[in-house]
Amino acid sequence: MRANTIGFYTLFTKEVWRFLKVITQTILTPAVTTLLYLVVFAQILEGRVEVYEGISYAAFLVPGLVIMAMIQNAFANSSSSLIQSKMNGNLVFVLLAPISVWEFYLAFVLATVVRGLLVGAVVYVAALWFVTLPIHHPALVLLFAVVGSAILGALGVIAGIWASKYDQLAAFQNFIVLPLSFLSGVFYSVHTLPPFWQQATFWNPFFYMIDGFRHGVIGVSDVDPWKSLLVCLLFLAVVSAVCLVMLKKGYKIRG
């Protein structure tokens, strides 16, 4: 069966267009929020904490904040788009179209990657006002940015399909996504934690996104970036598989 490339591209364009129509809310607001974190934490801890030798706390913090903003917004993009379409009833227009589950999945996830990259770029450029931060491995940065955003984009699709009301989506975001992203080494190195929390962090897939991305920016990380990339790719494969099975079965979207 031939792929519906125009259908896929239209859905992808529509998803990008949708968040660009409310750019203040979807790009600028998260950028400002992230910069506030940077201002507060970097101001308080600068000079008091040195996570890696020869690297300032602000230089350590910025990559973590950038990738955290990217993945949180990637999740918000697909999940809010889906739940709004479900609640408004306009998801029916996509469901009536000859679009396969793969095309549906890729369109939503790639649109979240675009939003993730835009948010990341805005935060990074703005952060340069506060700290000089050349990128050590640009390809690695881009790889972790894309994979991390895709993982959260796919998780957002799962949450958007699963949630029947905004309250459930908020629970998914506040009880799963937010703790996993905050407890992933954005603000600290995993080596500063007690053994129990260190072990717990190694089971958190978000840790590998942040650690690998940080390695790409400052050239130093807690674990080998290739190991981080492998974990991220495996996690992406798992959430994508769950997502595709849900779409294939029409779980909560096809009667």
Binding site: G7, K14, K21, V22, S85, F93
Partner: peptide, 21 residues
């Protein structure tokens, strides 16, 4: 039902695109 993000022509063009046009 409708998508509140788009105007009438945009919605029709998107729908046309979903069908491969």
């Amino acid at each position: 039902v409708y998508d509140p993000f788009f105007d009438v022509r945009e919605m029709l063009r998107l729908q046309s695109g979903y069908f491969g046009f």
